[in-house]
């Protein structure tokens, strides 16, 4: 199908962008990479009357190492993150996740900030940044603010973004020498939407887990941090016994949302299996 008609404007500055988005009289939407927006327009699932194309805002693009933080500009393309040596060296979890995001032609256009702002439940990056304890930078009519990733994702495609606000960057703490990570997803075909996915970020001293974040995606409406399971594993030795208990704890931590392809029970099975496979590989 073809989209409904809309107006198109490509602002040159962030200030101009905020003015355009702040015009309450218009149903406007931000066009970044467009790899999720364009399908919804083509299928007429959405019909805004103004597209504000932010691709001219160069200041929103790029990966920078700033002290012990990595700052990824919202407009940074997936392909750039995938090929970034700063990411590979300082944030291997993101590097591991990138090839799972759709296909090369889509990674050439899709943006880091777009994936965060859209908050697709099956998306890889929202789960990664929750596991990493990242902060999201937001600019809007009320000024700048930062929010911890896990508080940003509210519900299915719903975030903490208020009217007229846009995501400008994500700040991720750099990994330490004791960091241990895992990323895995189950999908029918490479690049397809995940049926269940897992991002884990831990600090380990030998076999002892000092601190672990376990985040699932494509299980519920938002990325879910399995805090009970993490609590069981924290400050303990990772072995069959502790892992078994943590896997069992997922029954309480997760409340899977069934979809077209998987029932609640099957989603739970996937989640348990992902945690089992990935943390068992740490023991060997």
């Amino acid at each position: 199908m073809k989209p409904s008609n809309f107006d198109y404007v490509k602002p040159k500055t962030l200030e101009e962008t905020l003015t355009l988005l702040g015009d309450g009289g218009r149903d406007s939407v931000v066009l970044a990479g467009g790899q999720s927006l364009m399908p919804t327009l083509n299928m007429r699932l959405s019909a805004p009357d103004l597209l504000v194309d932010i691709n001219g805002l160069d200041e929103l693009s790029g990966v920078k190492l700033e002290g012990n933080q990595i700052r990824i500009g919202a407009l940074t393309r997936h392909v750039e993150v995938e090929n970034s040596s700063v990411i590979a060296e300082n944030c291997p979890l993101i590097a591991l996740a990138m090839p799972h995001i759709a296909h090369p032609a889509i990674r050439n256009r899709g943006t880091f900030g777009g994936s965060i702002a859209l908050a697709d439940p099956a998306a890889e990056l929202p789960a990664c940044i929750c596991a990493l304890g990242a902060k999201i930078e937001i600019v809007g009519p009320g000024g700048d603010r930062k929010i911890v990733a896990k508080d940003f994702f509210k519900d299915l495609y719903e975030t903490d973004l208020k009217d007229g606000e846009i995501v400008t960057a994500v700040e991720i703490p750099v990994t330490s020498s004791k960091t241990k990570i895992a990323f895995d997803e189950l999908s029918r075909r490479h690049g397809d939407y995940a049926m269940a996915g897992l991002a884990v970020n831990a600090i380990m001293e030998g076999k002892k887990i000092e601190n672990i974040s376990i985040c699932f995606f494509a299980i519920s409406a938002t990325p879910v941090l399995a805090e009970g399971a993490a609590g069981i594993l924290n400050n303990g030795i990772l072995d069959d016994d502790s892992l078994g208990k943590a896997i069992q704890q997922l029954e309480s931590d997760l409340d899977p949302l069934p979809d077209l392809y998987a029932s609640r029970a099957l989603k739970m099975h996937y989640a348990k299996e992902l945690l089992k496979r990935n943390l068992e590989s740490w023991m060997s």
């Binding site: 467009g34 790899q35 597209l51 032609a105 256009r109």
Partner: peptide, 26 residues
């Protein structure tokens, strides 16, 4: 026309893209 099939692949600024997921204006 929603980015799944790849039949519309075009090169834009040296990179392959989905022709159905980029506006001509872009």
């Amino acid at each position: 026309e929603h980015g799944v099939c790849g039949a519309c692949t075009i090169r834009l600024n040296g990179e392959i893209v989905r022709g159905c997921l980029v506006l001509a204006a872009q």
